[in-house]
Design a protein around this nucleic acid. Structure first.
Lengths: 274, 274
DNA sequence: AGGCATTACGCTGGACGTAAAAATT
DNA sequence: AATTTTTACGTCCAGCGTAATGCCT
């Protein structure tokens, strides 16, 4: 039976050319490497080296053996990688959402109901959510429309608002529309999923100043006169963006219904999550 | 780093279902197998088994790990197989000849000039010799015509004779031809290569009583009145088939020139073999 | 002189087996 | 009662490192 450690040293020798370098790389003594190589020759049952008195090199057998060794090692590494990945996948619930708000409650709920599971979540575009759901690489999908092939299950509703400083020229309106606010520049958070694309699509004349940093975004909202967005959910959560006023966007697209689909393994619809 | 022995035991456990059976199969104690499995779990960094107090079985991770183990083991076995085969191939000279006679001297010569090499020889049909030469699976080729793509090099000439008991109706002829002897039944040795096919082609009306055993052939030649074949070479070697008479076959096809081709590695044409 | 491969030798940690325990059939 | 897994424990040897040798550049 071959020994993977020895094969590893053989492959290293093919790269490095000298036993001393191999010894250094593996943090072992040179005699140890010498013995490994002798042992390998026994195991292969064929000479692998041409030896001088203080010189050693691979012969043709050895070169072939080194190639084969790499293949075996790759296979062995793949084995642990695959098992580890499989295990990790088995003990995590992967959530893909098209927007941040649905995650707020969902992640809290999953953390409580399945404390032994690690939850991985990501906000991404609708098509990414769809493909992740389709290829099985996520366990929970949240989309602004029913998930194809699944029983439609509404998770929550969210409505878009514009947040404006009191003195702003739009501040008097009772409601607004994408058409009316198109052209104004907005402060925007990153990681908004489909909201981001919706805004860019509906307001082609506007520029969006995307802030990755939560703190920076907050400061800019507080100190600048640039309008920004909120939703009924985020307003409830953040206790509003004082001292701004929140004006609803009247368009149908600004009133969104989020649908959820979940694998049976998640236990989401067994014990009634909400 | 994984251990191939342990992987082997894992694969065996997947087949046999119980640690005790694995221990028996590998001629080790049960505690040893237990430790191997625990060690494997450490190495993989994931639980591979579901354990009862008295019961152990693979979980999903374990089943995947067992599959992967088999792949790794296959790869490892392939490695030694391939290196061994390569080494064996490197230290043998493979000879393919279309007829037996050229081998007699050639094998003796190779045995003397390359005593460190093992020589493997086979008599086969022309097309087999050609393909073996073309695909590199033989080092020396002997054919009744120049080997394509190689400098034509005549190795020897051989002429066919018919051997007949003195009282036989053909015994008076000075020479014979395939046409004249077609229809008679012949004693024939096996492993004659292209001679065999030549005879069957030239004498479609004859039947050939092929003898695989050397001794049986000799006895039949001695005791029966059936004609048989010989060549100038075999006559010289066997001191003739007493008390038979040997009559040459006059056809052009019965006078054969053998050509030889050899790889440089064989050293056949370096030091001048003949 | 410095670097490299190999042999010699003593030591130690890991792996094995035996024995025993505990549970299941 | 027999089988199976696992823990405990004592033994032993495979493999390590150090030291030394010999050789090459």
């Amino acid at each position: 039976m071959l020994d993977l450690d020895e094969l590893n040293q053989l492959a290293a020798f093919a790269r490095l050319g000298t036993l001393a370098k191999v010894a250094e790389e593996f943090h072992v003594s040179t005699p140890s490497v010498t013995r490994s190589m002798q042992h390998l020759e026994e195991r292969f049952g064929a000479p692998l080296f041409t030896r001088g008195k203080n010189r050693i090199a691979l012969n043709e057998n050895g070169r072939l053996a080194a190639e084969c060794a790499e293949r075996v090692l790759r296979e062995a590494e793949d084995a642990v990688r695959r098992v580890r990945a499989f295990d990790a996948r088995r003990r995590t619930i992967a959530v893909r959402s098209c927007a941040p708000a649905p995650l707020w409650e969902l992640l809290r709920h999953l953390g409580e109901s399945r404390p032994e599971m690690t939850v991985s979540s990501r906000i991404c575009q609708n098509k990414e959510v769809l493909s992740a759901w389709a290829d099985g690489s996520c366990d929970v999908a949240i989309l602004p429309f029913p998930v194809p092939g699944e029983k439609p299950r509404v998770y929550m509703r969210e409505r878009l608002f514009v947040c404006i400083p009191p003195g702003h020229e739009l501040a008097g309106s009772k409601t607004l529309s994408f058409a009316k606010i198109d052209g104004f520049n907005f402060l925007l958070r990153s990681e908004l999923g489909f909201w981001d694309t919706l805004c860019r699509q509906k307001m082609p004349a506007s520029r969006f100043l995307v802030q990755t940093d939560e703190f920076a975004y907050g400061e800019l909202v507080r100190t600048s006169s640039l309008p920004c967005f909120a939703t009924d959910y985020s307003l409830r959560r953040l206790a509003a963006h004082f001292p701004r006023v929140a004006i609803p966007v009247a368009d149908a697209e600004a009133d969104v219904c989020f649908y959820i689909a979940a694998r049976p393994g998640t236990g989401l619809f067994k014990a009634g999550p909400r």
